[in-house]
């Protein structure tokens, strides 16, 4: 199962490193990644495979939100279908 992980916040050093090592610790594989910085605003979108993850998507979402809180960015993890449903026919 794939999920979309978004990281939004003020840019600073080490955001990708923090997030990706956290995901590795949960056995979540990163399938694709895109990142943009607009002025000081950091937006990263990852497509992650959670089939082999050690936690369910709902729990992963909560733990990522906590991680985001700790490093000062906003992190969401959502089932990819919500984006497919809303933005493609």
């Amino acid at each position: 199962m794939q999920a979309v992980l978004t990281v939004i916040g003020k840019d600073k050093t080490g955001i990708i490193s923090e997030v990706s090592s956290f995901l590795a610790s949960k056995n979540v594989n990163i399938s694709d990644i895109s990142q943009t910085v607009l002025e000081d605003y950091f937006a990263m979108i990852m497509l992650v495979d959670i089939t082999a993850a050690t936690v369910e998507i709902a729990a992963l979402s909560e733990e990522c939100a906590e991680l985001g809180h700790r490093i000062g960015v906003s992190i969401h993890v959502q089932h990819e279908d919500i984006f497919k449903a809303m933005h493609s026919i």
Binding site: T6, A43, I45, F83, M86
Partner: peptide, 12 residues
């Protein structure tokens, strides 16, 4: 992969 604008639009 998803379009960044679309993903951010949903989250917004």
């Amino acid at each position: 992969m998803f379009n960044t604008g679309e993903v951010l639009e949903t989250i917004n």
